[in-house]
């Protein structure tokens, strides 16, 4: 039987209260969102916090809304809510396409976007989505709020720029009129973590790529992105030849490990192929828009 080690439990009543609790308990405290990464890690003793600070009562961290030219997603918004959100679907099909293949419907009822970003698993699907869309996060501490680009948020596997006494409160995505987007994942079986995934958005106007973003996960792409491939495409016609060259550059930015999900050459092949597929579909949907 797997059970977490003894731990204290407190329910935060507000973001301010959660920050005060974090300050009081220092690095012995951990925030509890969906718990679907943290509780398994505690069962395995990979995490041994002394106190859990439960964020589930904080309605201020819920909800998806539009603010100016950005979509704002609260940290406690679940995978299921992202999957079902008409606002997100209207602007970016990448969200539905990614969420459909993240875990399973029951896990999606609990896992949150804030937890996914802060878990910073090198195979996290939403990290690739966030990087592809060049989103940002709001991080709050007792000194106030700061904004940080998602492409600067991850310090490495399981490490982020969120400090000991800070909370990620929001994830923000810029709205880009005319953008098409897509997500593709290869998994060993339904509901599993990716062998490799790629996501992209593209804005095509006047026959050339005006803007684009490429995100990759599980393949060791730094900050889950492929900036050289993006730079190559911008200003060029979205021909098959150019998309393929960009996909090749994206794969070149990857440094996957061999593990039980596959060898290095296979993962690099997937990085190339999946990037090509999402670019093709994002281009088609931008041209159709």
């Amino acid at each position: 039987m797997q059970t977490p080690a003894p731990v204290e439990y407190a329910r935060a009543t507000s973001v301010g209260d959660a920050i005060a609790l974090l300050e009081k308990h220092g690095d012995e405290a951990r925030l509890l969102a969906g718990g679907h990464s943290l509780l398994p890690m505690m069962k395995l003793r990979l995490a041994r916090p002394e106190i859990l600070i439960d964020l589930n009562d904080l309605d201020e961290l819920r909800g998806i809304r539009i603010e100016g030219d950005e979509i704002v997603v609260g940290a406690m918004v679940t995978h299921a809510e992202i999957l079902d959100s008409p606002v997100l679907a209207e602007h970016y099909s990448i969200f539905r396409e990614a969420e459909k293949v993240i875990a399973d419907p029951i896990v999606r009822n609990k896992g949150t976007i804030g937890g996914s970003m802060c878990q910073a698993d090198p195979s996290e699907d939403l990290s690739a989505v966030g990087s592809a869309l060049k989103g940002s996060v709001i991080i709050q501490g007792s000194g106030g709020k700061r904004s940080l680009a998602l492409r600067e948020f991850h310090e490495g596997p399981y490490e982020t720029k969120v400090g000991d006494a800070e909370i990620l409160t929001e994830v923000r995505f810029p709205i880009r009129p005319g953008a098409g987007s897509a997500y593709e994942k290869v998994e060993r079986r339904v509901g599993d973590w990716p062998v490799a995934s790629a996501g992209a958005f593209v804005v095509v106007a006047g026959g050339v790529v005006k803007d684009c973003g490429i995100g990759l996960t599980a393949v060791g792409a730094e900050h889950f992105c492929a900036p050289d491939a993006e730079a190559f495409l911008i200003g060029k016609a979205p021909t098959e030849e150019n998309l393929s060259a960009a996909a090749k550059l994206a794969a070149d930015a990857c440094t996957p490990y061999a593990d039980q999900r596959g060898p290095v050459d296979y993962k690099l092949h997937l990085a190339h192929e999946l990037t090509l597929r999402v670019l093709r579909r994002a281009v088609a949907s931008s041209q159709g828009a």
């Binding site: 718990g35 509780l39 398994p40 009822n109």
Partner: peptide, 22 residues
Amino acid sequence: TSNCGTCVLWVDGSPVKSCTML
């Protein structure tokens, strides 16, 4: 390990894997 789903019950009407919730 939240993989088999035999522990699924509803909390406030929504199904969860109860081995992965306190």
